[in-house]
C-alpha cells in the first residue's frame, strides 16, 4: 500500500507563508501579494457574476428583460410577483393542466434516491471486504472498480440502452435506478474509509471472539461507517440527479417518465426564444426568466443534500471529488 499519506490539514503559520507575506516580521504589502490577491478576486468575480445574473433572471419579468431594463445584471427588476407568474408558466407546461415539471422532479427523486440507496447497500460491504478480507481476485475486483471509476459514465449508455431494450424495459424508471446503483466511486470511498478507520487488529479480535465474518461486518464495521455512508449517499445522489445521458437514452420514449434533467431540455425546446413554431402551439410562454426559474428549482434538492452532507464533506476524508 503506497498511497499518499494523509496529513492533517491544520496549517500553522509556517516560514514559507511568512515569506509570502514579505520580509519576516513585517506586514507590508509586497507587489507579489497584491498581485496574488487581485488575481484571485478577479477570477472569483468572473465565476460568480454570471451566476448572480442568472439567479436574478429567475426573479425578473420577460418584458423588462427584452427591453434591457433592470439595471446591472437585472438586479433592479427582481420581484416575487415575477416568480409567481413564471412558476405558473413552468408548472403549466404539459398536456391539459400541465404539471409535467413536478412529475419530472418526482421521477428524478425516485431514480436518484433508489439509485443512491442501492449504491450504499452495495458499496459499504464491498468496500469493507476489499479493505479488510483476504480472498482470491481481491486485486482484480479493486482494479476493475478503479477502472470503472475513472472512465466517463456516458461511454456505456448506449450498450446499457441495448441491454434494457432487450428485456423490453426501456421507458421504465426502475432500470435507470438499478443502473445508477452501480457506483464504483462509492466502493472506492468505502474501501478507503475502512482502510483508514478500521484497523486489521479489530477484525482479528472479533474473529477470536467468535463472530462470523458477516457478524463482524454488521456488528463492528457498520457502526463505524457513518462517514462513508454519508459520502456515498451524497456523491451518488448528486451524480444521479445530474445524470443526463442515461435518462435521455432510456426514458425519452415516455413523456411522463422523464427526469428533470431531460425535462429541462424539453422546456428549452419549447421556448419561443429558440423554437417559435413549437412555442406558438403552447398556452404557456417559457422565456429566459421561466427557464432560469425552472433550472434554479431543479437544483434545490442538490442544495439540500449538500447542506445535509456538509459536515461529513468537511471532515477531510475525501480530498475532493468531481462530477463529470
Amino acid at each position: 500500500m503506497s498511497l499518499v499519506k494523509a496529513k492533517p490539514q491544520k496549517r500553522a503559520k509556517t516560514a514559507h507563508q511568512e515569506a509570502l507575506a514579505g520580509p519576516v516580521g513585517s506586514n507590508q504589502m509586497s507587489v507579489g501579494r497584491v498581485a496574488r490577491v487581485a488575481t484571485m478576486l478577479f477570477v472569483a468575480a468572473i465565476f460568480i457574476v454570471p451566476i448572480i445574473g442568472f439567479v436574478a433572471m429567475a426573479f425578473r419579468d420577460q418584458d423588462e428583460v427584452a427591453a434591457g431594463e433592470g439595471g446591472i445584471l437585472g438586479l433592479g427588476g427582481v420581484s416575487w410577483d415575477n416568480v409567481v407568474y413564471s412558476w405558473s408558466q413552468v408548472n403549466g407546461f404539459g398536456p391539459g393542466e400541465g404539471g409535467l415539471f413536478l412529475q419530472w422532479v418526482g421521477n428524478s427523486l425516485f431514480v436518484a434516491v433508489i439509485g443512491a440507496i442501492l449504491a450504499v447497500v452495495a458499496a459499504i460491504p464491498a468496500g469493507y471486504a476489499l479493505a479488510r478480507l483476504r480472498f482470491r481476485f481481491r486485486r482484480t475486483v479493486l482494479f476493475v472498480t478503479l477502472l470503472a471509476m475513472v472512465m466517463p459514465n456516458t461511454v456505456l449508455v448506449i450498450p446499457l440502452f441495448l441491454e434494457v431494450n432487450a428485456i423490453g424495459a426501456s421507458g421504465e424508471l426502475w432500470p435507470v435506478a438499478v443502473i445508477m446503483g452501480f457506483f464504483p466511486f462509492g466502493v472506492y470511498l468505502a474501501y478507503i474509509h475502512f482502510m483508514t478507520t478500521m484497523p486489521q487488529e479489530l477484525v482479528e479480535a472479533a474473529r477470536i471472539d467468535g463472530l462470523s465474518e458477516i457478524g463482524i461486518f454488521f456488528q463492528v464495521a457498520t457502526p463505524i461507517s457513518k462517514q462513508a455512508v454519508a459520502l456515498v449517499t451524497f456523491f451518488a445522489f448528486v451524480a444521479n440527479w445530474t445524470n443526463y445521458f442515461l435518462p435521455l437514452a432510456l426514458l425519452s420514449s415516455v413523456q411522463g417518465n422523464k427526469t428533470i434533467s431531460i425535462g429541462l431540455q424539453e422546456l428549452i425546446g419549447a421556448s419561443p426564444l429558440f423554437n417559435p413554431t413549437v412555442a406558438a402551439g403552447l398556452n404557456v410562454k417559457l422565456y429566459m426568466p421561466q427557464l432560469a426559474l425552472a433550472t434554479f428549482l431543479s437544483m434545490i434538492p442538490l442544495l439540500i443534500v449538500f447542506i445535509g452532507a456538509q459536515r461529513f464533506l468537511m471532515r477531510g476524508q475525501t480530498v475532493g471529488a468531481v462530477k463529470g
Partner: peptide, 24 residues
C-alpha cells in the same frame, strides 16, 4: 461505469495489508 464521479487522490492509511494481523 462510474456515475460521473472521479476519485480524489486519496489519503491512505498506514495500516497493514489484510490478513497479516494476529494469528496465534
Amino acid at each position: 461505469m462510474s456515475q460521473g464521479t472521479i476519485a480524489p487522490p486519496q489519503a491512505e492509511a498506514q495500516s497493514q495489508p489484510p490478513g497479516r494481523g494476529l494469528r496465534t
